[in-house]
Structures are given as C-alpha cells and as structure tokens.
Design a protein around this nucleic acid. Structure first.
Length: 210
DNA sequence: CACCAGATCTCT
DNA sequence: GAGATCTGGTGT
C-alpha cells in the first residue's frame, strides 16, 4: 500500500467540534510491530476542548495530558480505571487542550492477535473506547506520537462510497450528548453512525435533545 | 497518602 | 441497575 492516503495534521487542526463528526466514517489504522496492518471504520466520537469541565486539560497541563495541549494530529492516550486505555486524536491549535475521543470502530474482518481478551460478538470488539484499544493493542506508550504510518497508528479519510452514502442519506450521523461524565453532560458533543452495531448501545437512548 | 477515574464485564 | 475489577494521576 502507499502512505499517501493518511489524514494530515492540518486537517485535524480545527475545533474538536468540527473534527469529531468529520471523523465518523474515517478509518483508524494500526500496524503492529510484527508487521500486519489492521483497519477499523470509526463510528462513534466525542469532542473535548478547552473550557470544557469534562476535558482532561480543563485545569492544567500535566505530564499525562500534555499531548492534548500540543499540536494537532498527535495521539493522546490515557489509562482509565487502572485497566483500560482511551485513544484521543489531538485537534485545534497548539496551546489549547483539545481532542476527539474515538469511542467505537467497526473491527476488521481479519482480527489482530490475542482477541481472546475480548468477550462477546466479534462485530462488537470495537464497541467502546477501552475495547477498541485492546483490540488494536493501543496503550499509553503511543501517547504523544504523531498519527502517521511510521508511528504504527494513523487515520485515513472517508472512502468515496461512504461519502456518497452520507450525501444520499444511506448513512446518517447522529449528534447527541456525551457518555459517563459528571460534568458537561448536557453538551451535545458526541456523534455516531446510525444503525451501527459497534456504537455504545447502552447510551444510544440518550437522544433526549429533540 | 488516599481517593477516584471520559470503562467494562458479570451478575440481578 | 449495581458491584467488582485494577493502577496511575491528582490533590491534600
């Protein structure tokens, strides 16, 4: 394959509110050290930004959240509940804490090694920010790396087929509120692809926004 | 040093 | 819907 198709930092250097819906239908790509490349379609995202009480960078910069304050197009990955990792795409301009959390992907038909850690149906192996990181072997050693093929972690734009289905109404992107927050629950900063198995079903119902 | 977390699984 | 899980980040 050629490397020319990956999403550039400049495309990501916009408000997370603009990037988050635009990433639906794009592809998360991961190349393991052993060589093989895996790809999953992004179907659920959330935006976090400066001034947002739910944003890790809301208070101040720390060693953990430093990538969020950095340049767009880098990874911000953190450990949550001591057991899971969450993968974010850094957005906007340097100095502003801003990122898009990738919450769900459609898993590839050929799965990476050790999928035994994952329970349930294969079509839901990417359903949840912690699960997709386990599936693609993403952990915080990758935090701060630029999203490009040589990092083993990158993004690819929507296929023409997906873009066409969006404009023709075959695909719909739903905007709703974010999940699992104690603050900022009312902000409609979550997007997902409608009728999609991998989206966090538990909270699909919170479309209580009209 | 103590508390708790942008989650998930396994029950009920 | 609730409890267990597990460890690093953050504030006292």
């Amino acid at each position: 394959m050629n490397d020319s198709a990956w999403i550039s930092a400049s495309w990501l250097a916009r408000s997370s509110l603009a990037v988050a819906p635009d990433l639906i239908g794009c592809t998360l790509a991961r190349q393991l050290a052993s060589g093989p490349i895996y790809r999953g379609l992004i179907v659920e995202t959330e935006a976090y930004m400066a001034g947002d009480p739910a944003c890790h960078g809301y208070r101040k910069q720390t060693r953990r959240n430093a990538p969020m304050f950095g340049k767009a197009g880098h990874a911000y990955i953190y450990l949550i509940y001591g057991m899971y990792h969450c993968f974010n795409v850094v957005t906007d301009r340097e100095g502003l804490a801003s990122a898009v959390l990738i919450r769900a992907i459609l898993p590839p038909t050929s799965l990476p090694p050790r999928p035994k850690d994952l329970k349930g149906k294969p079509e839901r192996y990417g359903a949840g920010p912690g699960k997709l990181c386990r599936l693609f072997h993403i952990d915080r050693t990758l935090s701060g790396l630029p999203l490009q093929p040589r990092s083993g972690l990158w993004l690819e734009p929507r296929s023409p087929d997906f873009a066409q289905k969006l404009t023709q109404g075959g695909h719909q992107i739903i905007q709703t509120t974010r999940i699992g927050l104690s603050q900022g629950q009312d902000l409609p900063w979550r997007w997902y692809l409608n009728h999609c198995q991998a989206v966090s079903i538990a909270r699909k119902s919170n479309q209580n926004m009209g």
